[in-house]
Design a protein around this nucleic acid. Sequence first.
DNA 1: GTAAAGTGTCTAGCTGGCTGGAGAGTCAAG
DNA 2: CTTGACTCTCCAGCCAGCTAGACACTTTAC
Lengths: 130, 130
Amino acid sequence: MLVQEELKRIGSVAKNSGLPIKTIRYYDELGLLKTFGRTEGNYRQFNSDVFGRLRFIKRAQGLGLSLLEIKEFLEVHDQGDLPCDHIKVKLGEKLSQIEQQIQQLQILKQELSGLLSGWKTVPEHSEDTI
Amino acid sequence: MLVQEELKRIGSVAKNSGLPIKTIRYYDELGLLKTFGRTEGNYRQFNSDVFGRLRFIKRAQGLGLSLLEIKEFLEVHDQGDLPCDHIKVKLGEKLSQIEQQIQQLQILKQELSGLLSGWKTVPEHSEDTI
DNA sequence: GTAAAGTGTCTAGCTGGCTGGAGAGTCAAG
DNA sequence: CTTGACTCTCCAGCCAGCTAGACACTTTAC
């Protein structure tokens, strides 16, 4: 027995997610959101999945993914079944990008802590000094 | 005895760094580059430090830092001595941001490998499913 | 029924980070 | 001395990702 879920309108989604209404509409326009249709009065309806989605978007975006890339991932998610080979490849690529990114971040972290902790202690050590 | 370093012009910097001339000029405009003055004919002159700088910029940028943030870091670097407290704080903040970012990346990595490896094996596990 | 709040679309504008083109000056080769 | 490659500045435009405003319609509260 599925409980009929209560659908939300854009305002409450905005309030609960912390994102501006305009942004949510924008994401919807781009097809990132899977609205649950519209009311009679043409108001967008969302179910509570939207919050997870928005969190995912925020996180991924904060990490430098574009909205289009994010959209692709969401689509894979939505289809539910195994992604086709093409997408598999893309996902694999993205994954190794991410690993690289982690490494780069670690380098940057070192460089910045170098700056913090006095810097002059590591002067001009050739090659990859800033 | 310092060997007089041979200065480069923008074209060769572009060639050796792989960046378009326009981009280099743009960075220079924003004050990211510390050119070595100009020739008589008003041509920019760079010494070989510029390559390290450009690599740093690329890396940092790829990780989501804005050119302005990057500029600040470069300035700290250029001053050479201990950054003032204000900057220290900013650096510290940025460092913890970076650590967070690393964690987020690890989460994203998991989520994406979830997608890759079939996804349905981890269905709707509440809370933070995409 | 009426006012206020919420939502819709549409169009336009903004910021950051480039990128392209015009028009002019500089420099190196023949 | 001219030609061609290189560089300069300036100004305009592009893309992503919003954001703001105008104006109309819907819903809710009284």
